[in-house]
């Protein structure tokens, strides 16, 4: 049996006395394509934030690649930089930078040995995501679909093991949405990158291999 990429055991998290996640356990394997659904406030973003190390659970354990999550900030930052990629609903691209600079941004925090291949990979990603003609454009000049492609490229540049996407199609029109979903599917298949998507949209969930639902603090597959 393969080691799970992410293993959560008995994770709990409360806000304002309300228990959002109650002893949730979950395994995500290499190359998984997971959707996390649930009603607003059910805790799906909280679960994603915990998996992405944006916040810590109140109880439970979190193993990444069979190792507990380090407590030191610099080690967590290194883990995020080398293993995680992020796609946000509102893109969160840096508007002062060009497309190319945005994609390369995570490399600023990468180790020297990862920087050089990363820089070469930027050009490959630009072509692969069909945004190479936009590489010098400022972010403000892009459409929503183009911005999300840039965000996806940025998430990929460090060759992560898993990409966390929080409502990645929430701000996109129909065509852009389909295009982005197709792209995510391709990336999952061709690069064997695990992807975890939080979504309200059943159609988005429909393309994923595993569908999780959060309800009443628990998680159901």
């Amino acid at each position: 049996m393969l080691n799970p990429l992410i293993e959560l055991k008995g994770i709990s998290k409360s806000y304002g006395g309300r228990e959002i996640l109650r002893e949730v356990s979950l395994q995500i394997n290499h190359g998984d394509f997971i959707s996390i659904m649930g009603q607003s406030g059910a805790g799906k973003s909280t679960l994603l934030n915990i998996m992405a190390l944006f916040e810590r659970p109140e109880s439970g354990v979190y193993y990444f690649d069979n190792s507990p999550i380090p407590k030191k900030e610099s080690k967590v930052a290194k883990l995020r930089n080398e293993q995680f990629g992020f796609i946000f609903q509102s893109f969160n691209l840096l508007s002062g930078l060009s497309v190319e600079e945005n994609i390369a941004m995570p490399l600023q925090y990468a180790s020297e040995e990862r920087k050089s291949p990363g820089l070469q990979y930027v050009a490959i990603l630009l072509r692969k995501l069909d945004i190479d003609t936009l590489k010098d454009e400022k972010i403000d000049n892009l459409s929503g679909g183009e911005k999300q492609r840039v965000a996806i490229a940025r998430a990929l540049v460090n060759n992560p093991s898993i990409i966390f996407a929080d409502e990645p199609t929430g701000n996109l029109d129909f065509n852009s949405r389909n295009s982005v979903l197709k792209l995510l599917q391709e990336l999952n298949t061709s690069l064997n990158i695990a992807i975890a998507i939080v979504t309200h949209d059943p159609e988005v969930a429909g393309i994923t291999k595993r569908k999780l639902v959060i309800r009443d603090g628990g998680i159901y597959e």
Partner: peptide, 11 residues
Amino acid sequence: VRKSFGATTTN
């Protein structure tokens, strides 16, 4: 965003 992609407080 920068922290998400690996920036530390020092960075």
